[in-house]
Design a protein around this nucleic acid. Sequence first.
DNA 1: CCGAGTATCTCGCTCGACGAGATAATAGAG
DNA 2: CTCTATTATCTCGTCGAGCGAGATACTCGG
Lengths: 158, 158
Amino acid sequence: MSETIPEKDMQPQGPELDIVHLLRAVTVELGLLSGRFASRNHMHPTDVRALIALMDAARAGEETTAGRLGAALGLNSAGTTALVDRLERAGHVRRVRSERDRRRVVIEVEEQAVALGWAFFGPLIGRTAELLRGYDERELAAIRGFLEGVREAAAGEG
Amino acid sequence: MSETIPEKDMQPQGPELDIVHLLRAVTVELGLLSGRFASRNHMHPTDVRALIALMDAARAGEETTAGRLGAALGLNSAGTTALVDRLERAGHVRRVRSERDRRRVVIEVEEQAVALGWAFFGPLIGRTAELLRGYDERELAAIRGFLEGVREAAAGEG
DNA sequence: CCGAGTATCTCGCTCGACGAGATAATAGAG
DNA sequence: CTCTATTATCTCGTCGAGCGAGATACTCGG
């Protein structure tokens, strides 16, 4: 394996650039991790994204309907139905017809699925929280501000 | 399955937790963005991941063979061949038989593809770099250290 | 109570990814 | 130098996630 290609600066550099690349590396790593979680539990990446979206909504105290879930994941209605079918068959969620509008199907996450995710991602979350405990308020504010800025910038693009 | 997961404690206390969720939100947002890039250019998410991996390797001065690319993306050999076929057909990469080991196929990214990616992601990168310019050295070090810590923690899990 | 609007599901299809195995090139033993 | 093991890539047949089109079920304003 020769690495003869010289290190050329194809991109404008500066101390900020390595952070940008670090961030991308982190997202890649997290993507691979959730992929490992998926295949270990005989799920597809989309299924994992769906569970995360569902738990997120639940945390925020919102009901998630089939339609909302599909929209959040960028699936059309057919794909969404198939997704919920898979998750339901695997016992990760259950369909509940909404009382007030019986066209709606509310998706609820089974406790078993929550436990599964927590068992897998818990250690990482714990380690990250521990890592954060080493910073003072100003540093935490910087990290928070940076992430918020990136999220907004990413949401605004495209 | 059932064990000590009291609902309240799963998202416990601490100012750190919102940063964990922020980070996840950022990765979700970046994932959606690259999805928009993919469909806008008639590509599949895997194709985008492949181009990113290829450009990454190129920046690090490494040649990428078909096999390495497939391994990096978690594809088997058949899928890798199909992937490179797609990218080549679209004019984003070219296959080059390695001189010294003629079994090897080195994948090179076409300049056109680099320009395409830069045109789409450049603004976000620029905005992020600008955002980072607002922090002093200690804050930048905190951000860098946090991201590095998360990357290592994520790589270590699973 | 009818028709427009909305939410979800069904059907048929495409194509990305997989497993198995073929093909081609290299490296090493004798 | 030839035979064999190993490595890198590609081919073939198959599966299944997601799409487009349209069916079905329910709600609500006139």
